[in-house]
Each structure stands twice: as C-alpha cells, then as structure tokens.
Design a protein around this nucleic acid. Structure first.
Lengths: 351, 351
DNA sequence: CCCGCGTAGTAATTCGAATTATCAGCGCCG
DNA sequence: CGGCGCTGATAATTCGAATTACTACGCGGG
C-alpha cells in the first residue's frame, strides 16, 4: 500500500489522486467543501485510506504558532528516589488537567545542574521557551531567574505562593493564612486560651503565611502572640509550658514527633494535657481523597495541602495566561483533618 | 528587551544584528564556525541573549533536525491515582538516564482516550514525531499502531518484550524465561520433584515467557509439565495436590494470597507442606534497591522485575537508535528474592 | 460579442530553521 | 591586467500543511 520508505505526505497523496496538494488539504479539513466535486473528494479520500496517510503535526503547528506543549520545570528531580515523594501529587493534578486541556507536558530534565540544583537559564538561553508556557515547581527559587522570566514576558505559573520584587507573578498556592487561622479558631472553641506557635527560623512564604494567620487569630481574640523559634523540641516545649500554653501549632510533623516524645517524658498526655496541631501535611506523598494515616502511627490533627488541586489549577491558570497574559494569583483552601491530638484543655484557663 | 508578542525568530535576531538569518543559524549551531568573524559572532550572540531567543522545535524538526527530546507515551495515565503505581519505577529510571544523556522528556498526555485508553494516532495524527524518538509504556498495545510506527521508521523502544508480525521492534524487557527457570532450579535443588505452574488464561508476552521458562526447566529434568489454569485458588490448589505437587509457581501475588488462605484452611503449612513462589513482583511500586516487604505481611519468595533499570536501559537503547536505526532487543535479568515461602519438601518424593 | 460571474480547481506563499548554492571582495600569481 | 582561489557573508531552497491569490472554463445577460 504505502510507498516504500518513510512517511506519506499530502503531496504524495495528491500525486496519486491526480490533484494538487491544496485539494488534499481541503478534503482533510473539510473547509470549503463546496469547492470540491464529490467525485474528486471521494477519489482523494480513497487514496488517503489506501496510503494510510497521517497528518504531520509539525507542519500544522508551524503555521499556528503554538505547539500545545506545557513545560514542567522542577528545581529538584521530578521522580525523586528518596522516600518523600514531594512532587507526585502535584504532577498527578498537572497531568490530569493537561490531558483535559489537550496539552502535552515537557519535563525539563536535561538542564545541567550547578550546586546540585537545576537552572532555567543554561548557557544564556531559556530552554523553557520551547513550550508555550511553563509550570515551575520546587521549594527553591532564584529571584534573578524569576525576574528575567518576567522580563521576557514568558507565560509561567508557580506552584506555591511566590513573590517577586520585580512585579506580580502568577502562582497557585495553598491558603496557609486561612488554614492556620481556622485551626486557631477551633482550638479557641474547644476552650484553649493560651495557644502557641512553634515556628522554624526559615523565612520562606509558607512560614510567613502560617505566622500571619496565627497572629491575625491571636489579635482577633486580643491575646498576645506566643511564638517559639527553638529548633530543639525539648527547649521549645519547656518555653511553651513556662508560658502556660495548653495548645501548640507546629510547622512540621518531624518537630511534632519530637514534641510528643518530650511531652511523654514529662508525663504529659497528648491531647489530654496538651493539644498539638501540625500546620500542614504529615505525609507528602498523600493521595487525593485518601485518608492516609501517617506512618509514625500518630493520627495528627493537621490540615491538608491540596496538592492535586494545586497542580490542576496551575495548568488552568497557565492556559488562561496563554490567551490573556495578565498575571493571576490563586490560593486554594486547605482541608482540616480533625485527628486525635486535639481536645479541650484539662485545666480551663479563663484568662 | 523582547519584542512584545510571540516568539523571537532567527530572522528577527538577524535583522537586529544586521546579518542574514543563515548567519544566526550558523552561530547557533557552531557548525562552520570558521566561516564567521569573531566580531559578527559576538554581535549575534549579544542579540540572542538580549532577545531570549530559543529554537522553535517544530521548525527544527520539520527540517529533520533533532530536539534533544525523548517522548514518553503511556497507554494508561502516567501518574495513576490508583494504589498500584505501576509506572513510577520505570519513569524514575527513564528520567534519571534522560538527565544523564542530556535529553528532556515529552509526556504525551494530550490525546483524548477512547475505551479508556490512549492512542498514538489520534484523529489521524502522530504526535510522537515532535520528539526525536519515543519510549512506549503500558500493558496494552495496538498491533496496527505498532505496524504504522515501524512503517514510518520512527525510532521507538518498548518497555517490556513486544513482538510484532511486521518485523523486529526494539524493546527492553525482563528475562522472565531465565528467572522462572532459575526459580524451578532452586526448588529442584531443595528436593522438590513435583513442581507445578499456576498460570493465568491471558496470552500476553510475560505469561508466555514464564510458561516457556517453566517448561524448559521441566524438560531439562525430564518431568512432565504440571500447568494449572484455574482462576479460583481453591480449585487450583485441589488440582495441584491431586497431582502430588509439593511446590507451586504462581503468576500473581493476588493469586498467591488466595492460595495461602486455602492451604491454611486445609491445614497445610507454607512452606512446610507446600512451597510457593511468586513469578514477579508482589509490590509494583517498589523502590530501587529497597527491600520492601509486601503489605500483606507475607514475605513471598519471588523475583523482582528490574523496572528502574528497564527504564534507564530503554533510554540508552533509544538514544542508540537515533544514531543507528537498527532495532535492538534487550532482556534484563530479574533478581531472585529468597523469601519465606520456600523450603525443602516435607515428604521427599524420589520419583 | 464581450463583460461578469460562478465553478473547480491549481499555483504560490507562509510558518521557522538548516543547508546548499551563490556572490562580492580581496590578494596573489603568471 | 586577467583570472584563480580564498574568505565571509547572503540568497535560495527544503521540510509538510494551510491558506490566499489566481486561472481556465462555461454560461448567461445586455
């Protein structure tokens, strides 16, 4: 059937059908079907079937400009071999939505790394531009690279809130502020009056947001903020107890594990004597809609970061950006998991 | 810097630099670097940097060039939301090796699905050609699509042995034949003389390979093959016991779980009264080099499919294919996991 | 009789990058 | 002084598909 080697082109079909290439294109697209005689159309379609012609997507898109490809850039490896599979839920959402929107995904894995970290601008050029737009993932970020991306007016969306001094950039993040406030509110409703925040010394966006949410909640109830910055759980716990704290908000589940151990050593029960809430996910490789119990066995009270939805929405925002290049920011609500580490305080403290 | 809308083309760069488009192309490819004055080259490179130019992969590939992009096509979703994350270990290996070889990965997610399955040729177009070559993953395969790929002389590698009536195609698979033979050999060495194979009714390559390995081993020891095809473990176990079997090779861990339960009901101990070996992985989402104990708690005797290595080797074979388009087949050895479900037979049967 | 108009196509152009053919300018040798 | 060879760049072509401009033909009306 097919001519010897390689692909069948419209020109070859045209030659076999005794027409011009333009007619083949018209028959294929059905455009201006009025201009073509039924006999001619049938003859062309016959040859199309015989040859097994398929459209070469390249020629078509060369004219159209867009290539229906979205880039996915990650500062770290996409499929990490370590235990904590941080990216997977995001990627799941991204893939799902990309499929729905009819885009392919280009994973930028090739870029050499420096300092064990990938770069967007390698040897002066921006490989991301191969795609129509790109989604950026990763805890790290390089302000200078971001600034240059903005400068180039390249459409991109960050997963996770990200601010740039150069101007507004698009992102899809989780609403840590609201979630932390809500957690505080629930503890207050249980009767807690001295609620502390055990934070980390880093100054990235999530940490700042959690702190902002906590302080807003404390202000609302006219309570002084009780923030502890110690890296050692034992020290932090002592400080908190000295302040009469009955409930603690903790940034990481690792720290929470440490706290729990220290509390038990002091003969304190959780949640009977001390309520603890983790401000985020204990299990980074959570499945969407899966009620995973953390591997440590403790059913932490916490809130879940909607990673799957964040990925999906990032794709939607990016696709929107392709049509209208106005930066957009989106914060998605976290869902709060009741868990087993919160309860009413054992020693009600009315003031 | 960048001209407001759309992509920067070589022609635009050329105009800004006061040279012809051909010179820009030459500077980019460094091909005939001797033919261009250092001053001219510097000027062009300056403009390239200022404009943030990147190649249009469609244009380049239309002309027959390569993009340093490998496609990854999967018949099912790449990041499945189900529990059995079948693809991840493969992808991990693929990504790792692609990074090492300096290729980006293009995930073909765009094509809609029919019958819940993706198609390579969607609406008469082959999107795979955007990439330099492609890796195909998935249990399903469409012989007709494969034939057309071969016809188009597009470089591709299947992960998992795959045969096509149209001619040899490239693949990287696991050596089920050798692994099954080796398992049989070990059981024989333990003293078993009546070793059965509990197979499934499907006729895909892995099943055929396991059966071939089993039959080769049985033939070597001049034993009649004892193959059972029942889907119900209770029936299969009865049949096997009627035949005096003391060791059973089982295709799936699910079936093995069923067998174990039935054996316990009959008052049979595993491995004391009956040895059971799973011909493959109990845990599809295995980590490389991780000695995962299956979730059921049973430490099955089995062999591990080197998914990570299969992915990595598929990339290597594909990259080789780009230079020399001769199809290549590669089978990787499985590693045998001793496990706790094999032992010497309780009733030695000398014949 | 010729203009106008509709029909059914074909020729030519476009997209972006790579490659080939070509050309202008210069120095050198016979 | 003419022609040869070399250098450094430009013009032209190619890839496959889509689109626009154009043309050959036929027919009817004024």
């Amino acid at each position: 059937m097919t001519a010897g080697s390689g692909r069948v082109t419209q020109a070859q079909v045209a030659r076999l059908a005794g027409v011009s290439q333009a007619v083949v294109s018209m028959v294929l697209n059905g455009s201006d079907s009025l201009r073509i005689t039924p006999e001619t159309r049938d003859r062309v379609q016959q040859v199309l079937r015989e040859t097994g012609y398929t459209v070469d997507i390249m020629g078509r898109r060369l004219r159209g400009g867009s290539n229906q490809i979205l880039g996915v850039f990650t500062y770290e490896s996409v499929f990490p071999s370590g235990v904590a599979d941080f990216y997977r839920p995001f990627l799941l959402g991204i893939e799902e939505e990309a499929e729905a929107q009819g885009f392919d995904l280009l994973l930028f894995t090739s870029g050499g790394r420096r300092d064990g970290r990938r770069r967007i601008y390698e040897q002066g050029t921006n490989r991301l531009r191969i795609a129509d737009g790109s989604i950026l993932l990763g805890r790290h970020n390089d302000p200078q690279e971001l600034a240059q991306l903005v400068e180039e007016q390249f459409p991109f969306v960050f997963v996770g809130r990200r601010e740039s001094p150069t101007g507004p950039i698009s992102y899809v993040g989780a609403d840590y502020v609201a979630a932390t406030r809500e957690v505080h509110e629930r503890l207050w409703g249980l009767g807690h009056r001295r609620i502390g925040l055990l934070s980390v010394t880093e100054e990235n966006e999530p940490t700042l947001d959690r702190r902002a949410g906590y302080e807003a909640a404390a202000r609302k109830h006219r309570r002084p903020p009780l923030v502890f910055l110690a890296d050692d759980p034992a020290i932090a716990l002592r400080q908190a107890l000295d302040e009469g704290v009955t409930a603690l908000l903790v940034e990481s589940s690792a720290m929470a594990d440490g706290l729990l151990a220290c509390a038990h050593e002091l003969g304190l029960g959780v949640p009977d004597d001390l309520s603890i809430v983790v401000l985020g996910d204990a299990d980074p490789s959570q499945q969407p809609h899966a009620h995973a119990v953390p591997s440590t066995g403790t059913d932490w009270s916490m809130f879940r970061i909607p990673r799957h939805e964040m990925g999906a929405h990032a794709v939607r925002v990016l696709v929107g950006l392709l049509k209208n290049p106005k930066p957009r920011q989106l914060l998605l609500p976290c869902t709060i998991h009741e868990g087993a580490t919160t309860a009413a305080p054992s020693t009600p403290d009315s003031r």
